[in-house]
């Protein structure tokens, strides 16, 4: 194919380049700058090369918080995606209840993160919180400020409550876009409900579910505010996820070099996982 070369076109791309540079590239470069140097303040820098990267990658602390992060994200994806699809399937297809359901579903999404954290903190308090009190009332000892398992349970439950709606809304939109003809044809073909789900609904929801999984992966992998307000990363380090750990390193200990290296590794993990997942999911689409 012959492409016309028109060098002036670059000129028109310039504003976008400038914009992206200011809101992404330049801030990222300052992080890169910190990640390869040591500073003791006063704008004095010493070159360190890849030392911080080596330190972070070999640090057990980083391994532990990465593992916690992966576990958390894995658990919430394993709950929220199937649950979201299941709720979307049971939602009414038409009639006045559609809007009622949609509004109810959208509500958790509208609440700011720190408010969600504060709400669940109070809600789960073992002495005065409704949830905490009820669980203890059933004879199960529950205290999320002292038991790691209880802290995890509460954090996961909070995330499921906050974000399953997003999956529901996306899955619901995907389901509504399936033409009625498909269901009618399946009826005539004698397909059982499970076969309809497997061969019509699930394949037709593939794109929106890909987006849902990506969004939930990224958001949960970078989760900070809610667990910070709810558990503060404790008890001990049991709910110290990557971003909480990062903030501890950067602002708590003021180790800017290691923190910058950690940020970059963190960023690359998110990028890599998204890219691999998206490529795999979309592989068949191009054929």
């Amino acid at each position: 194919m012959n492409k016309t070369t028109y060098q002036k076109a670059w000129f028109f791309v310039l504003p976008v380049v400038a914009l992206v540079a200011f809101n992404a590239l330049i801030p990222l470069m300052t992080v890169v700058n910190y990640s390869v140097q040591e500073t003791f303040g006063d704008n004095v820098f010493f070159w360190e090369g890849v030392k911080w990267f080596e330190d972070v990658l070999n640090s057990e602390r980083f391994h532990a918080s990465l593992l916690r992060q992966l576990m958390f994200t894995g658990i919430i994806l394993a709950i929220e995606i199937p649950l979201g699809v299941a709720i979307a399937l049971t939602m009414p297809k038409k009639g006045p209840w559609v809007s009622v359901c949609l509004v109810f579903m959208a509500m958790p999404l509208l609440i700011p993160w720190n408010v969600v954290g504060a709400m669940w903190n109070i809600f789960a308090l073992p002495d005065i919180g409704l949830l905490g009190h009820a669980i203890n009332g059933m004879g199960i000892e529950y205290n999320f400020t002292r038991q790691p398992f209880a802290a995890w349970f509460t954090t996961v439950l909070m995330d499921v409550w906050h974000w399953t709606s997003l999956v529901v809304l996306l899955a619901y939109a995907g389901l509504r876009s399936i033409p009625e003809d498909y269901y009618q044809a399946a009826k005539i073909d004698g397909a059982k409900p499970w076969a309809v789900f497997l061969h019509i609904q699930l394949p037709k929801m593939k794109r929106v579910l890909t987006i849902a999984i990506l969004l939930r992966f990224m958001d949960s992998f970078m989760i900070y505010t809610e667990p910070f307000v709810l558990t503060g990363g404790g008890p001990g380090n049991s709910t110290t996820f990557l971003s909480i750990d990062l903030v501890k390193v950067a602002l708590g200990q003021f180790d800017l070099g290691p923190a910058a290296a950690m940020s970059l590794i963190y960023f690359l993990i998110v990028l890599l996982v998204c890219w691999v997942f998206y490529t795999l999911m979309m592989k068949d689409e191009d054929q």
Binding site: D181, Y182, Q184, A185, K187, I188, A191, H199, I200, P203
Partner: peptide, 29 residues
């Protein structure tokens, strides 16, 4: 119900089961 009536119907928009091969589509009913 439709599946007990021994009727086949072809719709305005072609309905195929995307994830299946042509063979499995034909074998599905």
């Amino acid at each position: 119900p439709a599946d007990k009536r021994n009727i086949a119907q072809v719709f305005q928009f072609p309905v195929v089961y995307d994830t299946m091969t042509v063979y499995n589509n034909l074998a599905f009913p």
